[in-house]
C-alpha cells in the first residue's frame, strides 16, 4: 500500500497537470461551443467562422488592452484585458451583425439549405481571418498582465510540505469564475426572459414561433450578439490563459464543434457539458502518468515509458475520436439535440 503522503502527492500532481488545466480549457471550450450551438439552434447551420470570430474579438481586446496599458489604466491584480472586454464584445457584435445583414440574411430569406449557409460562413471565415492577420499579424501575442499566480507551486509546497506543487494560475480562476457567471446569466436569460423564451421557441418550432408573432429578425439579431459575446469572452480567456495566435483559434473549431455535438447540438446545457468532456478527455489521455504512477505503485514496479496514452501531438485526435464515437453510438448527443 502506498503511504498517505504519496497518495496526496499523486493527487496534487494530477490536479496540477490535468484537473486545473482541463477545468479552464473546458470552460473556454464550453463558451465557444455555446456560441456554435446557439447559432445552430436558431440559424440552423454550422458556423465555420466561429473560430475566427473568437480570434477577431480577442484581437480587438488585445489592441484596446495595449492602448489602456499605454494610458496607464489597469485593474491592479486583474488583467487589463477584462477592462477591454466590453468594448471588444461590442466591436465583434457589430462585425458579425454586418456579416449577417450582408451575407446570411439573404440565404435565410431564400430558405436555402443549411449547407449553403455553412459554405457562406467559409467565405466569412476567410474575410475575418484576413482582417485579423492584416491588423495584428499571424504571430503569437501575449497580453496577460496583473498577478500571474494565486498560489505558486513553491508556496504550495512549503504550505503543505508535499513534494509536488500545485500552482493555481489566476487565469484559471478567472476563467472558471467568468464562465460560471456567463453560463448562469445565459441560462437565466433563456429560461426566464421573454426574449430568451422566444429564442427557445424559435429554435424549437420556427413556423409556430412565427405564427405566434415572434419577430425572427430580432431573434436572429439577439442570437448574433450573444454568440459574438460568448466568442469574444472565450477567445480572451483562452488568450490570457495561453497566448493569442490566429491559427490556433481556427483550429479550436474542431474541439468546439465536437463539444457541441457531443452534448447535443442546439442544446445549451449540452454545449457546456460537452466542453468539459472534451477538455478532460484530451488532457487526461495526453498526460504522461509516469510520475503519478511512481507515487502509487510499489518501488521497482513503475512503468518504463512515459505511461502516456497518446502523445500531445495528437490532442485533436481525442476530440475527433469522441466525436466519431458519439456519431456512431448516439448521434443526437448526450442531451438529445436535434438531428436530421
Amino acid at each position: 500500500m502506498p503511504e498517505t503522503i504519496d497518495v496526496l502527492n499523486a493527487i496534487t500532481l494530477l490536479a496540477n497537470f490535468v484537473l486545473l488545466p482541463a477545468l479552464s480549457y473546458g470552460s473556454q471550450l464550453a463558451l465557444g461551443a455555446l456560441g456554435v450551438t446557439l447559432i445552430f439552434g436558431i440559424l440552423r447551420f454550422a458556423n465555420f467562422a466561429h473560430g475566427d470570430t473568437m480570434a477577431f474579438g480577442t484581437m480587438i481586446a488585445i489592441l484596446i488592452t495595449w492602448w489602456f496599458q499605454s494610458l496607464g489604466l489597469s485593474l491592479g491584480p486583474l488583467p487589463t484585458a477584462l477592462l477591454a472586454l466590453p468594448f471588444a464584445i461590442l466591436a465583434t457584435a457589430i462585425v458579425v451583425i454586418i456579416f449577417d445583414k450582408t451575407v446570411f440574411s439573404f440565404y435565410r430569406r431564400q430558405k436555402s439549405p443549411p449547407v449553403m449557409l455553412a459554405i457562406a460562413s467559409v467565405g466569412v471565415m476567410f474575410m475575418m481571418n484576413a482582417i485579423v492577420r492584416f491588423i495584428i499579424g499571424p504571430d503569437d501575442q501575449r497580453f496577460a498582465d496583473g498577478e500571474k499566480f494565486i498560489i505558486k507551486a513553491r508556496e504550495f509546497k512549503t504550505m503543505t510540505g508535499l513534494n509536488e506543487g500545485l500552482a493555481i494560475k489566476s487565469t484559471t480562476v478567472l476563467t472558471v469564475v467568468i464562465t460560471l457567471i456567463v453560463v448562469t446569466a445565459l441560462f437565466w436569460f433563456l429560461q426566464r426572459s421573454r426574449t430568451g423564451k422566444a429564442m427557445r421557441a424559435f429554435s424549437d418550432n420556427e413556423d409556430l414561433a412565427l405564427l405566434s408573432g415572434i419577430n425572427p429578425e430580432r431573434i436572429v439579431l439577439v442570437t448574433w450578439i450573444i454568440a459574438a459575446a460568448l466568442a469574444t469572452i472565450a477567445g480572451v480567456l483562452y488568450g490570457l490563459d495561453k497566448s493569442f495566435k490566429p491559427f490556433t483559434y481556427f483550429q479550436m473549431l474542431l474541439p468546439i464543434f465536437a463539444a457541441a455535438i457531443v452534448g447535443g447540438i442546439g442544446q445549451p446545457i449540452g454545449a457546456v457539458v460537452g466542453g468539459y468532456v472534451i477538455a478532460f478527455s484530451e488532457l487526461s489521455i495526453t498526460y504522461a502518468y509516469k510520475k503519478f504512477l511512481k507515487y502509487l505503485l510499489p518501488e521497482g514496479s513503475e512503468p518504463e515509458g512515459l505511461a502516456q496514452l497518446l502523445s500531445t501531438d495528437y490532442k485533436f485526435a481525442v476530440s475527433f475520436i469522441i466525436l466519431v464515437v458519439v456519431l456512431l453510438v448516439r448521434p443526437t448527443g448526450i442531451f438529445r439535440g436535434r438531428v436530421l
Binding site: 447551420f45 455553412a118 473549431l253 474542431l254 475527433f320
Partner: peptide
C-alpha cells in the same frame, strides 16, 4: 446524418 456533420467530421480527419 446531417449534412454539416460530414463537414465537421472531415474537418477533424484533416487535422
Amino acid at each position: 446524418l446531417r449534412a454539416d456533420y460530414l463537414a465537421i467530421a472531415t474537418l477533424g480527419i484533416s487535422e
